[in-house]
Design a protein around this nucleic acid. Structure first.
Length: 499
RNA sequence: GGUCCCAUCGUCUAAUGGUUAGGACACUUGGUUUUCAUCCAAGAAAUAGGAGUUCGAUUCUCCUUGGGAUCACCA
């Protein structure tokens, strides 16, 4: 247990082996919020001990993703890739010397040992143990290898790995979201903590880093809970105190079984950003996946949160805490995300949305040539959008009317002749700048407005004709009506009756 | 299979040893509306099952069932 007066220091420790995952982003968000809430430090550490799988592109993607979500770090690797803080280096690949020292210490104290068992032998053991219904674990063959034997093996050129001696007995720890968790250490087996002195493995480096970086709380995904006893054993052997732990539930697949996967609409934050989900909406959605404020907690406006679901980050910082994090996994829901995103888009000024559209490359270049027009388009479309990316398909008719079937111009409760007459009337009214709704009152709303709307949009579903009119303007409207009238003539003037 | 964990509407969740078990998304219906969407109103929808403790359990305990995570010389 950590001392009460110690500063709160939490860390986010992604491994750069892929793009920023939605679950990683949420864990990062929880860490960030927790640190802010308790006036602590949140640092970013890059876990790149696996040189073969780590890439600079992934690291950049992760850094960039966090930055775009507004999840910032006080220490560690900054979004531009530089490092800040006194506990560095913050990339594990640069900490090999430190790990080697501790590894050597364990070896010297006989708490760890070299193992030369072949992979084939190990696999066979694991299989037979599983078949026998036992927990698969290393049986300890090399545990008591004599020193000269080890040297003999090494002289033969055998590399050998380093295993830690795991004691018997139970080991329990207090998890801030789960409560007390207890494990039987005997089931673990002596695990490999390094491939060599210069090639330490995950569970080992995490322990060394969390301790040397003075991490007070490890807030991480549920998938690490089974690693916790292993890390506790390592920390014990090293004589380190352990941080407090909080394992947050995983994000479950919306569709199939199990964890969130690619089929659920994407697992990478980048994909959501690229599709036109706003960072604020993503954050709001993500924070509610597995956490919810107490209804009696006070919001920024001083009143109880109650049933409210919309929160800005500054508010989350005052509301968030680990004790209200859900224990069970939360299922991802694209519907709900879309709802949040739509609501956030609605609140934005059209001019600002235009800026986002340009920055994010959400609309064709040609649209940008008519910025004033684009802004008017946004104003009428924004309440209809689930994502910024949707605008491209939703609003293209403003810029270029799509081809459409003349029969669409005919209202379901009317006929082609009426459509033609009403369109003519609408044309005159527009030309004269007359009150269209008054005219619609006279001629019948559907009778006038349906053909007009289709003439202006070419679509079965679209914003209202008057809205479209104000966006495209009188001249373009007249052109479109003429074109519609032209199409209509093929219906109202029968070419032949030969059939 | 071993280990660990979880369990309230379809989904995210709120609440409580005594409530009409609340909200949101999605869904259905009605209203507004030229269409779709919006907006407004209404509706359907949950305490997994079985024991026990208790005057009383959805809430506490146990079992069953279901779900999830994890079992590397990855992280």
């Amino acid at each position: 247990m950590m001392a009460k007066d110690k500063q709160i220091r939490v860390r986010m420790a992604p491994s750069p082996t892929g793009n920023l995952h939605i679950g990683t982003a949420r864990t990062g968000l929880f860490n960030f919020l927790f640190a802010r809430r308790h006036r602590g430090i949140v640092l970013l550490r890059i876990e790149d001990t696996d040189a073969a799988r780590s890439t600079a592109e992934s690291e950049e993607n992760i850094l960039n993703g966090f930055a775009r979500l507004g999840i910032t770090f006080d220490e560690g690797v900054m979004s531009d890739g530089s490092e800040k803080g006194e506990y560095g280096p913050y990339r594990q690949s640069a900490r090999t010397d430190l790990y080697e020292r501790y590894l050597q210490q364990l070896l010297d104290e006989h708490k760890a040992y070299y193992c030369f068992c072949s992979k084939e032998v190990l696999d066979a053991q694991r299989e037979s143990q599983q078949a026998a219904g036992q927990s698969p674990r290393y049986v300890g063959t090399c545990r008591s290898l004599a020193k000269d034997q080890v040297e003999a093996f090494q002289k033969e050129g055998k590399r050998g790995v380093i295993r830690i001696k795991v004691p018997d007995g139970k080991r329990k720890f207090m998890d801030l979201v789960r409560g007390e968790v207890e494990f039987e250490l005997g089931l673990l087996g002596d695990m490999v903590i390094a491939k060599s002195l210069r090639a330490p493995l995950y569970n080992f480096v995490v322990v060394v880093d969390d301790f040397t970086m003075e991490i007070s709380h490890v807030i991480r995904g549920d998938d690490h809970i089974n690693n916790t006893p292993k890390q506790l054993v390592i920390a014990d052997a090293l004589g380190f105190s352990s941080p407090a732990y909080a394992h947050v539930p995983v994000i479950l697949s919306a569709t199939g079984k199990g964890k969130m996967s690619k089929r659920d609409g994407g697992t990478a934050i980048e994909e959501y950003l690229a599709a036109g989900y706003l960072p604020e909406a993503l954050v709001n959605f993500l924070v509610l996946l597995g956490w919810h404020p107490g209804p009696e907690q006070l919001g920024l406006d001083g009143s109880p949160v109650g049933d409210r679901e919309f929160f800005v980050v500054e508010e989350l910082v005052t509301l968030f805490d680990l004790d209200r994090v859900q224990k069970g996994g939360a299922r991802f829901s694209l519907d709900k995300l879309n709802h949040f995103n739509n609501q956030y888009i609605r609140r934005l000024e059209p001019s600002y949305i235009v800026k986002l559209l340009i920055d994010g490359d959400f609309v064709p270049q040609e649209w940008l040539e008519h910025r004033a027009l684009l802004e008017r388009v946004v104003a009428v479309e924004q309440e209809r959008l689930a994502t910024l990316g949707d605008l491209r398909t939703e609003a293209s008719f403003f810029f270029e009317i799509p081809p459409y079937d003349p029969r669409l111009l005919v209202w379901k409760k009317s006929d082609a002749l009426s459509a033609e007459e009403n369109l003519q009337a609408a044309r005159e009214a527009i030309k004269a700048g007359a009150d269209m709704m008054a005219l619609a009152g006279e001629r019948g709303r559907g009778d006038l407005l349906w053909p007009l709307r289709v003439a202006l949009s070419g679509l079965e579903h679209s914003p209202g004709p008057l809205e479209i009119l104000t966006v495209i303007g009188k001249d373009e409207a007249l052109v479109r009506i003429d074109s519609a009238l032209d199409k209509l003539s093929s219906l109202t003037t029968p070419q032949n009756f030969s059939q």
